[in-house]
Amino acid sequence: MKKLNSIIQKLGSNRLAWSMFALAAILLFNLIVYPEFFKITILDGHLYGSLVDIFRNGAPLMVLAIGMTLVVATGGVDLSVGPVIAVTGAVATSLIGLEYGSTNTPLFLAVALALGVAALCGFWNGILVSRIGIQPIVATLILYVAGRGVAQMITNGKIMRIFYEPYFVFGSGYFLSLPVSLYIVLLVYIVAWLFTRRTSFGLYVESIGINSEASRFTGINEKNVKLLAYTLCGLCAGIAGIIISSNVKSADGNNAGLWYELDAILSVALGGTSLSGGRFSFAGSIIGALIIQSLTTTIYSTGVPPQVIMLVKALVVFLVSLLQSENFRKMIGSLLNSRKGAIQ
């Protein structure tokens, strides 16, 4: 009994385990209610099925969550990722042009420039936060307001369609029977992991998230670390923007990436990174993104109006943030203890 208790305690303190558990619970629910959920068929050498869909549709969110993790870990937040997605799609689309089967700019250059603009958006956020000292919510709110305006300006207020085949690879292409977007996620994850865990950058980020002032006194260049975190977050939003616009084969200044900011923040929180900053885990955030995506897919298949998913997500956020709250845990703990006392 004691052993079991200590195992439970260990599990309880390991946040990654909790998110794995949540993901498993959702999948288990599907396994029982919709056995065909797990069916994977091979068509034209490509894998198809709900599980593959979760990975494929969740790819932009997973990339976004990786970038958001860095910003949240510094104790900040980036609300502008949705509009940055829209801007990136708009830039890439306008560079490629509207001619059928041809492109005005070489594909590589178009994507690189679009990603450059996204990184610039992140850099702008980073300057506002680190140099001018505006609170992150508000600093990124400015781009949130203005970003969609800029995206619409680029697309001239219209939904621009793309007719250039090779661009579609990022969102809907397949490689070795798996979606290309999954390889992109893997690549971003590996690069992000190497960059944070094989250099001191990750440690700096965590240190700033725990105590920004103290980190500055130990000689960490707090401003530049924050600037870099926001820039990388913008870059990740850009990569997500390319995947999304490539998947829907168009750029929509108004609706591309709409509501993505909460999903990204929620993924990070579900993945066990504290929203007040500090220790972070990319793997956790990716699992968080998968939880959200499988929740969405599940709700679609239950036939509940898809808009109601917002309510479910909100309740999940409340639950997660309450579980992360020390006061709440204490309250629950004392409630449980008093009940134990009553039994004895």
Binding site: V77, M310, L315, L322
Partner: peptide, 23 residues
């Protein structure tokens, strides 16, 4: 009382209210 960051709680409140609309 639970020291949840205000923007997270109210962001969740925003989604809750939208969800309730569609409910």
């Amino acid at each position: 009382f639970f020291k949840v960051p205000p923007f997270i709680a109210t962001l969740a409140g925003m989604f809750m209210a939208r969800g309730l609309c569609f409910l």
